[in-house]
Computed example of a mutant assay.
Amino acid sequence: MSREQRPNPRLNEDLLFNEAPGGPPRYSPMTAGPVHYLTIADREGEVIGYAWANDEDDAAGWEVRKAGGDEAFNKGARWARKLHDAKARGVAPTAALAEMIHESDLTKSSHVVPGSLTEAPNLGYVEGLADQE
């Protein structure tokens, strides 16, 4: 009688991932059109990232400034969450940016840089800003 242990056949099965419907509503993460964007800075005035929006494609997102490192990433979660919350309330993408301006507080760990609302020709432009050192 052999005591050889055979591998469980389930360990060799391919895993199937089926996307489940539902979940929280989200703005589209992509657009080919022009975008409006805000510059977000920390208390010391160091830019941590950019919030952007395009109403035509119902698109919006947060681009963390890579040079800001982990601290910028962590502080940026607040701004990404604001976009998620706005979408859940049915707010248009550029209206979400307007809310961010209105609710910005210079005493918080990060804030909208006053007067920073700008239009860019495309999302790639904003991503380029985020990638700069």
Rank of each mutant, 00 (worst) to 15 (best):
D42K: 03
V47C: 05
T118N: 11
P21N: 06
E99C: 09
W79K: 01
P9T: 15
Y37D: 00
M1C: 15
T107H: 13
G124E: 12
L117D: 04
A53K: 04
F73L: 13
K82G: 01
M1A: 14
M100V: 02
V126G: 01
S116N: 04
R26H: 04
N54V: 04
A88Y: 09
A67F: 02
M30Y: 14
T107F: 09
R26P: 03
W79L: 06
L83A: 05
S110W: 01
D42W: 06
L16D: 11
I48M: 10
G115N: 15
D85T: 15
P93T: 08
G49E: 00
G90F: 03
N12V: 15
D105S: 07
Q5E: 11
R10Q: 11
G33Y: 01
D70I: 13
P114S: 00
A120M: 06
G23N: 05
M100G: 00
M1L: 11
N8G: 10
G124L: 12
N122V: 05
N54C: 11
H102T: 13
D70L: 13
S104C: 10
Y37L: 02
G61N: 05
P121R: 14
D131E: 10
A60R: 03
L16E: 12
G115V: 08
E127M: 12
L106H: 11
Y125H: 06
S110C: 03
T118Q: 14
S109M: 03
W62H: 01
Q132A: 15
W79I: 06
N12W: 11
G76L: 04
P9M: 13
D131Y: 00
S2K: 14
V47P: 05
E127I: 12
S109C: 08
P114W: 01
